[in-house]
Write a protein that binds this DNA or RNA. Structure first.
Length: 215
DNA sequence: GTACCACTCGCATCCAAGTG
DNA sequence: CACTTGGATGCGAGTGGTAC
């Protein structure tokens, strides 16, 4: 028979059991109704499904004609708002009752990662002018063309800020290739700046490199 | 020589049970 | 066996000036 190991092998998980962190395994917060049904406030999505099936079999709620169909008893009816539900529909319906822990306030310790904000508020620039930002955070001199393109008059920005602005612009003007959103189709302004028709999202920094002048 | 950090999206991954 | 459904998550892709 197929045991867990075989399945893991099939799934491409190596023998050391190194598994990618799956979103399914993440413990989530349950809605009030689901909490009442299952008796716990938090559970991994996979566990929820499992428990639902335990419950369904206990109560014998499967439609004998079509076992994929589940006849809702009162608690389930309250939960899903329907008389019966297809097993796949149930997964969909369940998602309304499985909430990210984030929505609950800071109960867990580590989940909070306001790294971006921390950095935005990084006081280095405000307080310690003499302490120049380093590496990626160091502001760079922009080419005239890039200054003109950005249209803000700023001639010194960090790489990260420029990249962000670029993507803002790309999205605003809907320049992403719908077939592959990593591809960008240049409009006139971009063509002028980069002198290409299209470019790959990853190469933005490469293209931009020509517009960062060494000081 | 190497780690650092920012940006973006696509993809594989995780699991359950029943059907074809 | 492969396929169906749900969706969050982590990785990987490329770049590069600077500090260690």
């Amino acid at each position: 028979m197929w045991n867990g190991e075989h399945i893991l092998m099939l799934k491409g998980v190596n023998s050391e059991g190194k598994r990618r962190g799956g979103g399914f395994n993440k413990v989530s917060k349950l809605s009030q109704q689901l909490q009442e049904l299952l008796g716990v406030p938090e559970m991994a999505r996979t566990e929820v499904v499992k428990q639902m099936w335990v419950y369904i079999r206990e109560k014998n709620l499967q439609d004998p004609v079509n076992k994929k169909n589940i006849i809702c008893d009162e608690p389930l009816h309250a939960l899903f708002g329907v008389e019966s539900i297809d097993m796949f529909q149930m997964n969909k319906a369940l998602s309304k009752h499985i909430l990210p822990l984030d929505s609950d306030e800071v109960k867990s310790t580590e989940k909070e990662k306001p790294r971006k904000h921390e950095r935005e508020e990084d006081p280095d620039e405000a307080k310690g002018k003499e302490k120049r930002q380093k590496g990626f955070l160091a502001p760079l001199q922009l080419s005239d063309a890039l200054v003109k393109f950005l249209g803000t008059g700023e001639n010194e920005l960090t790489r990260a800020v420029v990249i962000k602005r670029m993507w803002d612009y790309i999205k605003e003007n809907n320049l992403q290739d719908p077939a592959d959103k990593r591809k960008v189709i240049c409009d006139e302004k971009l063509k002028e700046l980069f002198e290409v028709e299209t470019f790959h999202g990853f190469t933005v920094t490469k293209l931009l490199a020509a517009h960062f002048l060494k000081s």
